[in-house]
């Protein structure tokens, strides 16, 4: 049984992570928001039969199911270009800005073309700065598999970006 306070805590801790995770997989911000809400709603509905341990992997598991059923509906469109940011935007020279635009466009394209499993692992590692074993725990796969997907993702980026 999870109380409302505990649920709020869970929401604060994981909503953004889960929402990003879903976004990495489907590449659609609106769909990712909707699905993340559904994930937490489902946890709330089931809270009678839940206790506090292993909620994180449950969240990922529900998120995975949501992504798959959403994928079956085929509604979301993959768009990473909208989401590209550069860290210190103000310190860019006009040239840099041009270059940045070019690179980020390419980067987004490659991400969109990349197989979903590899993209997800790559972004969780690079963007969210998660350790391999953390990613492995979230996705319920082995660290070896994470490494494999990571190197495949890097291989794709290397060949397509450079």
């Amino acid at each position: 049984m999870i109380s409302k306070a505990e649920f709020k805590q869970l929401f604060d801790d994981y909503f953004d992570t889960i929402r990003r995770f879903i976004f990495y997989r489907c590449g659609d911000t609106d769909a990712a928001s909707d699905m993340a809400q559904d994930v937490f709603m489902k946890v709330w509905e089931k809270r009678e039969s839940l206790n506090n341990d292993n909620l994180k992997s449950l969240l990922y598991k529900i998120a995975n199911d949501k992504v798959i059923s959403n994928y079956r509906k085929g509604e979301s469109r993959c768009d990473f270009e909208q989401s590209m940011t550069f860290q210190d935007n103000h310190s860019l020279s006009p040239e840099d800005e041009m270059q940045y635009k070019e690179v980020s466009e390419k980067y987004a394209k490659v991400l969109e073309q990349m197989p979903e499993a590899q993209r997800t692992v790559f972004l969780m590692s690079r963007n969210d700065e998660l350790k391999y074993h953390e990613i492995a725990g979230c996705l319920d796969i082995s660290v070896k598999a994470v490494e494999k997907r990571m190197s495949a993702a890097l291989q794709i980026l290397r060949t397509k970006l450079l």
């Binding site: 929402r19 990003r20 911000t29 928001s33 990473f80 590209m84 550069f86 860290q87 972004l123």
Partner: peptide, 10 residues
């Protein structure tokens, strides 16, 4: 420094 930062509506 290029990051993927989804722009959420909410």
């Amino acid at each position: 420094d290029i990051k993927v930062t989804p722009k959420w509506r909410k």
